[in-house]
Amino acid sequence: MERNENNARPVAVITGATRGIGRSIAQAFIGQGYDIAFCYRSNDVEALSLMAEAESAGSRVVASRLDVSDESAVLGFFEKIEQQFGRLDVLVNNAGQTRDGLLVSMEKKDMDDVLATNVVGTLLFCREAVKLMLPARCGSIINLSSITATKANKGQTNYAASKGAVEALTRALAVEVGKKGIRVNAVAPGVIKTEMAGELLGNFEKQLKQRLLARTFGEPNDIAAAVLFLARPENHYITGQVLTVDGGITLG
């Protein structure tokens, strides 16, 4: 278990934590002895399951069902975190959504929804996390990007734009808060076997595997391991970076 200088349990916040990559990340922090706070959009059953898992491992938990782009809901969530824990060590901005389609026929709502969740939500959570981290002059923020930010597929202009923005804000915030002891990095997953990627894998599995140097698709635990690496205090010299975890697909 990692401890801070007061020998208190560290605290991690994870957005979109009830399934897929987010759940694996939450489980990884629970396994390292963190107390956790997480939010989710709709799946109460999975949220209760994750809460029970965390509590059985000895972690204290704060959980909220919310839209990450809803400022008032985000403020309320962080009020609960401050009341329960009084500190924050790690924020992982994992919540995201896709609305794929050719730009020429894309509805504005599909643009707004993706940008609201992937960009505005990330900005709001970063802002509130920094407020809790500043008193201790330490903390780690990890934003989830995607290889789509640099190697986009047809029909993903809105998603690629959102993840490009995530990488840009990661670098900008790293500059803004670096001298306050807060590190900001991003992880850019490739093709990971999750529910979100199911349709893509089903339609293009053979073609994708031919491009993978690793010859296999990634698992959510692969991304959780990268997030844990960036969060560890001993990696204090890494900030403003995007760690690509893609099995070599961008080189294939």
Score class of each variant (00 low, 15 high):
L213W: 15
K206I: 01
L115H: 07
K151D: 07
G198C: 13
V119P: 06
I182N: 00
V74M: 02
N203C: 13
P233M: 04
P189V: 01
A136R: 15
S140M: 05
L212P: 00
A214D: 05
G96R: 08
D246T: 01
N153F: 14
P189K: 08
G181R: 06
N94D: 12
M106A: 06
R127T: 03
M133Y: 10
E5Y: 11
A26S: 09
L134Y: 12
L212V: 00
D70Y: 13
I238T: 01
K109S: 12
R9A: 14
V242M: 12
N43Y: 10
T194M: 09
S49F: 11
N118G: 06
V114M: 15
A165Y: 10
I30R: 13
F85Y: 03
V119S: 06
C126F: 10
T170I: 04
R137H: 15
T216D: 14
I142G: 06
V62S: 02
G33W: 06
V187Y: 07
K108R: 13
F217P: 00
I192F: 13
V62A: 05
P135M: 13
P10N: 07
A73T: 00
A57K: 11
A174L: 02
S69C: 04
G33Y: 07
G178I: 01
G16L: 10
V11G: 07
I249V: 05
A214W: 06
R171K: 13
I141T: 01
N153R: 14
G248D: 03
I14Q: 04
I182K: 01
N7C: 10
L75K: 13
V242H: 09
R23H: 14
Q27S: 14
L75A: 15
E167V: 03
I223M: 04
E205K: 11
A17V: 02
Q210E: 07
N94F: 05
A73W: 01
L230A: 03
G181I: 08
I36A: 02
Y40G: 01
A47D: 00
L228S: 05
G96A: 11
P220F: 14
F38S: 00
N118V: 03
A188F: 11
E82H: 05
T239V: 08
V74S: 03
